[in-house]
Simulated assay, not measured.
Amino acid sequence: MRRQLLFLFCLTLGGCAWEAGQGFAVVEPTVRVAYEALPARNAGDGYQKLSSDYQVRLDSAAMRLSGIELLATASGPSGSFDPANPPPGYSLCHGGHCHRDDGALIPYEQIAAELGGGGGSRTVVTLPVDEPLNLLAPETRPLGCQPDCALPQTQVSQGRWGVETLRIEGIVRDGRVPPRIASERRFVLDLKPGADDADAPVAVLDGEVELPSDRATPPEAKVALNLVLTAGLFDTVDWDNVKDTTGVVNISRSDNAEALKAVLEQLARFSPEAEVTRG
Rank of each mutant, 00 (worst) to 15 (best):
R2M: 13
R3C: 12
L6Q: 11
F9T: 11
C10S: 10
C16A: 11
A17H: 09
W18Y: 14
G21V: 12
Q22D: 13
V27D: 08
E28T: 15
P39A: 07
A40R: 04
G44T: 01
G46E: 06
L58D: 04
M63D: 06
I68N: 01
S75Y: 01
G89A: 03
Y90M: 05
L92Q: 10
H94M: 13
H97E: 14
G103K: 00
L105A: 10
P107N: 06
I111K: 00
V124T: 03
V124S: 01
V125W: 03
T126A: 12
D130L: 07
E131N: 14
L133P: 11
L135Y: 02
E139P: 10
L143R: 02
C145W: 08
P147S: 02
L151V: 08
Q153S: 11
V163F: 00
I168V: 15
V177K: 13
P178M: 07
D197C: 12
A198S: 13
D199N: 13
V202G: 05
V209D: 02
V209R: 01
D214W: 02
R215H: 07
A221L: 05
A224N: 12
L225D: 01
N226M: 13
L227T: 12
T230K: 00
A231V: 07
F234K: 00
D235Y: 02
T236V: 13
D244V: 14
D255H: 00
N256F: 04
A259H: 02
F270T: 09
F270Q: 04
P272E: 10
E275M: 13
T277F: 00
R278K: 07
G279K: 13
